[in-house]
Computed example of a mutant assay.
Amino acid sequence: MTAPPAAQRTSMSPSFTRRFSSTPLGARLARRTTLTALNAWGIPYGSDVSERAAVVVAELAANAVTHGRVPGRDFELRLSLPTGSLRIEVTDTRGDGRPPGPGAVRAAGPLDESGRGMALVEALADRWEVRKRTPPGKTVLVEIDVPGWLGLMRRLAVARPPKRRR
């Protein structure tokens, strides 16, 4: 897996950012909110991209709640559609406990009770990386390629005409 390229944005590229409580409910809401946002952007429920994104967000949000939790601090989910892909970023405020990077994820044993989340992320992502955050924390950035991205952007532009300047 290669590192994600720098974001290439167009003026019509949608994005979404929201903070969620570092609780199991917050993790579940992040997953459901992702599916709703993607559907609104023309990536329908049940599509390959939507299903992959749901699992990735569920795993990253669960990790943020379980391993990246700092009492009283939320985790953040950011979704965007830079050129050709869906970008998912989950940020927590704990600087230690960084997950292994791409290619370094160890497979969980058949009797292990945990340790499969990042292996799922690695399997479902087209590109991903872990970034250090200042102030303390980390961001896991995942990209999933979106077939027909240009057509999707055109449909979004037609559905949402540009705002008129006064």
Rank of each mutant, 00 (worst) to 15 (best):
P5V: 06
R9G: 02
T10Y: 03
S11K: 09
P14M: 04
P14L: 02
F16L: 13
F16A: 09
P24W: 03
G26E: 08
G26Y: 05
R28C: 06
L29E: 03
L35H: 07
L35P: 00
L35Q: 15
L35N: 07
T36H: 11
L38P: 03
L38V: 13
N39L: 06
N39M: 01
I43H: 00
P44K: 08
P44H: 10
D48I: 14
S50Y: 01
S50D: 05
R52Y: 10
A53W: 13
E59L: 13
A62S: 15
V65S: 05
H67G: 00
G68D: 10
P71A: 14
G72Q: 11
R73M: 15
D74C: 02
R78E: 14
L81Y: 04
L81W: 00
S85C: 13
E89Q: 13
V90I: 15
D92C: 10
T93R: 15
R94W: 10
P100E: 01
P100G: 00
G101S: 11
P102K: 02
V105R: 05
A107E: 12
A108G: 01
G109W: 09
L111C: 03
S114M: 07
G115T: 02
M118A: 08
A119F: 07
L120H: 03
V121W: 01
L124Y: 06
R127W: 07
W128Y: 04
E129G: 02
V130I: 14
R131N: 06
R131V: 13
K132I: 05
R133A: 05
K138V: 13
K138A: 12
V140T: 15
L141G: 00
P147E: 07
W149H: 14
G151T: 08
G151D: 15
M153E: 10
M153Y: 00
L156Y: 09
V158Q: 04
A159M: 09
K163G: 10
